[in-house]
Computed example of a mutant assay.
Amino acid sequence: MTADPADVDEAVLDVVEDIPVGRVSTYGAVGRLVGVGPRRVARALSRGGAAVPWYRVVRADGTPAEPVRARQLELLAAEGVPVRRGRVDLDAVRWPED
């Protein structure tokens, strides 16, 4: 049985809402917690991410999503997230910790 897309979206948003201030997760890590792939996480955030701290989710290499890059880096900097050369220092702020 396939999960209802709205349920998957809600599960993704619930996980993203739990990312603490000053911490960052990846699309893949959120996906593993929900049981979906990273692209499905991105789709859920593009649909309803404005209601949660979407900017705390980055690519596996620590880079922000290109369409929102400047805004995402600005919001992360406001939370004290370390960024070097346009990449979040995931070793310092990864959530959940491995």
Rank of each mutant, 00 (worst) to 15 (best):
R40N: 09
R56H: 12
R23Y: 02
V58T: 12
V88M: 06
E79D: 07
I19Y: 06
V16S: 08
Q72T: 15
R43V: 09
D89G: 08
V21K: 13
R71T: 13
V52L: 04
P96K: 09
A29C: 04
P82G: 11
V52D: 08
R71V: 11
G37L: 05
M1K: 07
A44D: 12
L75V: 10
Y55S: 03
D91E: 14
L13K: 02
G62I: 03
R87C: 10
P96E: 08
A51E: 15
G86K: 06
R71K: 11
M1L: 12
G48R: 11
L73N: 12
P96W: 04
P96D: 12
G28P: 01
V93D: 06
E17A: 15
S46Q: 07
V8Q: 04
E10K: 11
W54V: 09
A6H: 13
D98N: 11
V30P: 01
P64A: 15
R71P: 00
V81S: 07
R23W: 00
A70G: 05
T63N: 03
P67N: 06
L45C: 08
V58M: 10
R43L: 07
V8F: 01
D98P: 15
G31V: 01
V21T: 15
R32L: 12
V93A: 10
V21F: 13
P96N: 11
A3W: 05
R87Y: 04
R69P: 02
G28F: 01
V24W: 00
V68Q: 10
D91C: 03
V88S: 00
A60C: 08
A77Y: 01
V16G: 05
A42I: 03
D89A: 14
G31I: 01
R32E: 15
R56T: 08
A50Q: 11
D61I: 05
G28Y: 00
G28Q: 04
V36C: 13
A78G: 07
D61L: 05
E17F: 03
D7A: 15
G37C: 06
D18I: 00
G49K: 05
V36F: 04
A70K: 10
Y55L: 01
V36K: 05
R94Q: 11
A70S: 12
R69N: 13
E17C: 09
G31R: 00
A70N: 06
Q72F: 02
V81N: 09
A50S: 12
V93L: 09
G28H: 02
D7K: 12
P53T: 07
D98G: 13
W54K: 04
M1Y: 08
R47H: 14
V58Y: 04
R94P: 02
W54E: 13
R85F: 05
V41C: 07
D89S: 14
R43P: 00
E66D: 14
T2E: 14
V30Y: 00
R59K: 10
Y27H: 08
P64Q: 13
R84M: 04
A3M: 07
E74I: 05
R56F: 08
P5K: 01
A70T: 14
V52W: 00
L90T: 07
Y27Q: 03
V83Q: 07
V58Q: 09
A65E: 08
W54Y: 12
L45H: 07
V34L: 10
A78E: 15
G62Y: 01
A92L: 06
R40A: 11
S25L: 02
V58I: 12
A11T: 10
T2C: 03
